[in-house]
C-alpha cells in the first residue's frame, strides 16, 4: 500500500450552484479542439444533447455525425484512433455502451486505442424518458473491460477537468455524464487527479464512498448525520477504474464501516468495486446503495432519486442501519 492519504478535506462549492456535466464536456471539447489538432469528435445524431455540436461548428472537418448508428460510430472511432487520432465519441450512455459493447471490447479495448467515450444522459436523472433511456449498467459494462479507464465526475467542475485528462490518459477512457443540472460540489480551485479518490469531508464513524450525482447527496447525508452526532467521511470516487484501493483500505481502517452510493445498479458498479478492495485489504461491515435490481421509470430526476433512496435522506437512513451493524459486529452481540 502507498502513503497514507491526506485527510484534509477539499474545498467545496457554495451550495446553490447547479450545472450539467454534459455542458462542461462541450466546453472542454472546445478547448481540446483548439489545443490538440489530433482530437476528432464523433456523435450519433445527438450532438445538441451531448453538447458536441459546438466542436462540430468550430472544427467541421474533425467532426463526424454518424447518424443513429452507435456500433458503427465506435468502429469508425477505433479506425481513426488506429491512425493516430484521439477520438472522442458521444451518445447517450444507454446507446454508447449498450449498443456498442462488443465493438468497444473488440475494436477499442483489445487494441488499446485512444477512443474516449464520453456518454451523457446516464442514470435516473435523465428523468421522463423512462427506463429505455435510464442507463444503470454502464459502469459495470465498462469497468470489467481490460484497459478501459472509467471516470464518473461528481459535478461540472470535475467533468471539465476529467475530459481534459481523458485526452492525456493512454488508451480507452469512459466518462459518464448527466443530462440534468446537478449541484456543483467542487470549488473552481479543485484539481482532478486521475486514479485518486478525493476526500470531501472527514469523519471516523463511517465512510460514504460515492460517484457522480450521489456525491452531493452523500455530502447532504453527512450533514444530516452530523446533526445526530455521527461523523461521516465522504469520499468522491470519480475514478472507478483503476480504483484507488489505498483510499478504500484507509477508510475501512479508520472508519470501520463503508457505505457506497451510486446512481447505478448495485451489481457490478462502484459498490462491487469497493467491496472487492475492502475484502482484499481490510474487511469491515459494508452496505451498498444503488438500484436494487430494478429498471427505472418516468418521473423527474429528483422524484426518482428520492423514490429509489438515492437522495441525502435515503443515504442517511442506510448509514444509520450500517452503524447498527458496525456496533453489533464490534461488541459481538
Amino acid at each position: 500500500m502507498t502513503a497514507p492519504p491526506d485527510l484534509t478535506p477539499l474545498a467545496t462549492a457554495a451550495p446553490p450552484a447547479k450545472a450539467a456535466t454534459r455542458a462542461a464536456y462541450g466546453e472542454a471539447l472546445l478547448e481540446l479542439g483548439a489545443s490538440n489538432p489530433d482530437v476528432v469528435v464523433l456523435d450519433a445524431d445527438l450532438s445538441g444533447s451531448t453538447k458536441t455540436k459546438a466542436f462540430g461548428k468550430a472544427h467541421p472537418e474533425r467532426f463526424f455525425n454518424i447518424g443513429v448508428a452507435e456500433a458503427n460510430m465506435i468502429g469508425v472511432a477505433a479506425g481513426l484512433a488506429a491512425q493516430g487520432k484521439v477520438a472522442f465519441a458521444s451518445s447517450f450512455a444507454m446507446f454508447a455502451t449498450g449498443k456498442a459493447f462488443e465493438q468497444i471490447r473488440q475494436s477499442v479495448c483489445v487494441p488499446e486505442l485512444d477512443v474516449k467515450i464520453c456518454a451523457t444522459h446516464a442514470g435516473l436523472t435523465v428523468g421522463e424518458d423512462g427506463k429505455s433511456h435510464q442507463m444503470l449498467e454502464d459502469v459495470t459494462l465498462m469497468r470489467v473491460l481490460p484497459h478501459m479507464s472509467v471516470i464518473v465526475p461528481a459535478d461540472a467542475v470535475e467533468a471539465h477537468q476529467a475530459v481534459l485528462a481523458a485526452a492525456e490518459i493512454a488508451g480507452p477512457v469512459y466518462v459518464r455524464l448527466s443530462r440534468a443540472s446537478t449541484p456543483v460540489v467542487f470549488a473552481e480551485s479543485y484539481r482532478f487527479q486521475f486514479g485518486k479518490a478525493a476526500l470531501l469531508r472527514e469523519g471516523r464513524d463511517l465512510a460514504i464512498v460515492a460517484m457522480g450525482v450521489t456525491v452531493a447527496a452523500a455530502m447532504g447525508a453527512a450533514e444530516l448525520l452530523a446533526a445526530d452526532g455521527v461523523q461521516a467521511r465522504v469520499i468522491n470516487m470519480s475514478t472507478v477504474s483503476p480504483l484507488d484501493e489505498a483510499a478504500i483500505a484507509a477508510a475501512a481502517h479508520d472508519c470501520g464501516a463503508i457505505l457506497t452510493a451510486e446512481e447505478h445498479q448495485q451489481s457490478g458498479g462502484l459498490g462491487d468495486a469497493v467491496a472487492q478492495a475492502v475484502v482484499k485489504h481490510h474487511p469491515v461491515p459494508m452496505d451498498m446503495i444503488g438500484m436494487d435490481g430494478a429498471f427505472g421509470q418516468s418521473g423527474t430526476g429528483d422524484e426518482l432519486l428520492a423514490y429509489y433512496g438515492l437522495d441525502a435522506a435515503g443515504i442517511a437512513r442506510r448509514a444509520k442501519a450500517l452503524l447498527d451493524r458496525k456496533a453489533t459486529a464490534s461488541t459481538g452481540v
Binding site: D129, G130, K131, S132, Q297, S298, L304
Partner: peptide
C-alpha cells in the same frame, strides 16, 4: 403521460 407512476411511460412499456 411521462409523469411518475403513470403507465404511459415516456417510451412504451
Amino acid at each position: 403521460f411521462r409523469k411518475f407512476g403513470s403507465p404511459l411511460q415516456g417510451h412504451p412499456h
